Computed example of a mutant assay.
Amino acid sequence: MLISHSIWAQECTTISMTGNPEFPPVTWNQKDGTLTGAYVEYASTVMKELGVKPEIEPSGNWARAQLRVKRGEVDLLLAPYYNKHRALWLHFIHPSVSLDPAVVFVKKGNQFRYRQFADLKAKKGVLQRGYSLGVQFDEYAKKNLSIVWVNSWDSAFQMLMMKRVDYLPHSYYAGLLQVKKLGLENDVETLEPPILEDKMYLAISIKSPCVSIIKRLSTVVERLKTDQVHGRINGNVYKNLQQREPTYMRSFVWTRIEPVFGSVICGRVPI
């Protein structure tokens, strides 16, 4: 075992990373298909501190990104929330690095009183397939809530606009950018308080040779968190995204009619 561990340590000079292509400012795909975002920049900063070369790999969608890491095809998953199912195939690097609290988005005019998870019981929600809001919400939702799952956030917001669902839980900054991209600033609002203060992580596949650097990774993550490096990176990325909105908007076009649960709605897809 010691010999194997030593070999793994020598092999981990490069680490492949992937994440959600529809989660700005945390992670998202640019027009040319490359994955970028605050967590990409943050993870790259961490790896450079360790002398490990980061290789960023786009994966098509969030469910596919998770599957590739689960299979060991990619070493590291960017910004997943912790849940017990993911813990079966991921080593979560502690401490967590929080960038974006989760809130409830609703269509303007369809607001309702929200103070706790139980207030969602009589409502229908929508989420991107493969998306997790952490153990507490996930387990409550599985037992108590009516959730529609779709392949993209664009489809989710369109369902919200069509009143096919009542609410959409999403990370605050990522949701605001999605709303702006879709031109829904005057049609959508958020409820208070947040569903949860997010706890995102860097997480390594249990099948990756880079499990050997977990302890060193945690040390660097803790130090950078104390120095508030992640907050500065997130703020800069979000600010740049707002300034470059036309470029970001042009990376998506209305080109596909996407069937969702028996109906047809328009969806934006990357080109």
Rank of each mutant, 00 (worst) to 15 (best):
K180E: 13
A65E: 06
A65P: 07
G37W: 06
P58A: 12
G51C: 14
K53S: 08
D166S: 11
W153V: 08
K142F: 08
S171I: 06
P194T: 03
A203C: 07
D32C: 07
A38V: 02
K123C: 01
Q136L: 13
K124Y: 08
R64T: 10
V126F: 06
L184M: 11
C12Y: 03
I214N: 00
V74G: 06
N240I: 04
H91D: 08
Y238R: 11
G130E: 12
L76C: 06
Q116W: 00
L2N: 15
W62S: 12
I204C: 02
H170G: 00
S208Y: 02
F157I: 09
Q228A: 15
P95V: 10
A79M: 07
D100A: 07
F112I: 05
G19D: 03
G125L: 01
P24R: 08
R256Q: 11
N110S: 14
K31M: 12
L145P: 02
Q136T: 15
W28F: 12
E197S: 14
P246I: 10
A9Y: 14
M17L: 14
D187H: 11
K84S: 13
A79S: 09
N61W: 05
V97R: 01
G183Q: 10
M17G: 06
P193D: 09
S44V: 08
H94W: 05
G175I: 00
N20D: 15
I195D: 02
S4V: 15
H230Q: 15
S59N: 07
V188Q: 03
K121R: 09
M1N: 09
Y167D: 09
S155K: 07
F105D: 04
P21V: 12
I265A: 01
E73D: 15
G60E: 10
C12D: 11
T18I: 01
Q136G: 04
P58G: 14
M17I: 12
S263H: 06
F261E: 06
E49Q: 13
G235F: 04
K142M: 06
L184F: 12
E41F: 05
L77H: 04
L67C: 04
V135P: 08
E11L: 13
E57R: 14
R86N: 05
P54S: 02
D227Y: 12
G33N: 09
V229P: 05
P54R: 02
I147P: 00
A174Y: 05
V135T: 15
T34Y: 08
V52P: 11
W8H: 15
L202M: 10
P270I: 07
G134N: 03
I15W: 00
R71Y: 02
T219N: 07
T13M: 05
V69N: 01
Q66C: 00
R223P: 06
W149V: 04
V237I: 14
L90M: 01
Q178K: 14
L184V: 05
T13P: 00
E189C: 15
L176I: 10
